[in-house]
């Protein structure tokens, strides 16, 4: 599993490096910039529908985003624990079985 740790480190590096290279950048998301881009091409266009519900603040939005990540990560953690446990149990059984026959 050492290889996995190395791979994860690589992902972290990929995510952190831009913060150093682009110190002046805003690291904004898409929405406003996309709006600008579209209005540049077609200045008469106006969104004809808006979101039914929007998170009232940036804080609540980040709460919901982290909730989404937490739900996913929680399940992945559960899955990993479960399968590791299962495979350990199987290994033990196999090991014991061999021991008896010899």
């Amino acid at each position: 599993m050492k290889k996995n740790l190395l791979l994860i480190a690589l992902v972290i590096i990929l995510a952190v490096l831009p913060l150093f290279f682009q110190k002046g950048a805003e690291f904004g998301g898409s929405d406003d910039q996309a709006e600008a881009e579209i209005t540049k091409i077609d200045s008469s266009y106006h969104p004809w529908f808006s979101n039914i519900w929007e998170p009232p603040s940036g804080e609540i939005e980040s709460l919901l985003f982290s909730l989404q990540a937490a739900i996913g990560a929680g399940f992945i953690g559960y899955f990993i624990g479960l399968s590791r446990g299962k495979s350990k149990k199987d290994d033990n059984k196999e090991g014991k079985g061999k021991h008896v026959t010899y």
């Binding site: 950048a25 904004g28 910039q33």
Partner: peptide, 9 residues
């Protein structure tokens, strides 16, 4: 949302 080399996420 991960930062990228272009200075946006």
């Amino acid at each position: 949302k991960i930062p990228s080399v272009t200075g946006s996420c």
